[in-house]
Amino acid sequence: MMLLFLTLKTRGRNIPIALEKTSHLMIRYLYLFLIPACTGCFFLAQSNFNEWIFMTFSIFTSTLLTIILGALLMNKVLARYEKKPKVRPQ
C-alpha cells in the first residue's frame, strides 16, 4: 500500500483511469473480503472458554476507551491547532 502510494506521489500526475477503476471496485467489495476473516472470531471461543470471556471483556473495554479518549483528544488538539494561525497577526 505504501509502495503504491509513494509511486503515485513521485509520479506527481493524475492517477491512470484503469488503476482508479480497479481500486474503486476493490474497495466497494472490501466487506465481502472481510467476511471469512471475521467469521474466525466465532470459532475461537471453543478453545478455552473461561479465558476467552476475560479476553473479550478486556478487548471490548479497551477498544471503547481508546475510541472515546482518542476522539476527545484529537478534537481538542485540532481545535487549538486550527485556531492558532488566525490569532497570529502576520
Binding site: 500500500m1 502510494f5 503515485l8 481500486s23 474503486h24 467489495y29 473480503f33 467476511i35 471469512p36 476473516a37
Partner: peptide
C-alpha cells in the same frame, strides 16, 4: 477472499493519494 483482501488493502493507496 483472503488473497483479495490483501490486494484491496493495497488499493487503499488510491483514496489516500
Amino acid at each position: 477472499f483472503f488473497l483479495l483482501l490483501d490486494t484491496a488493502i493495497v488499493a487503499l493507496a488510491i483514496p489516500l493519494y
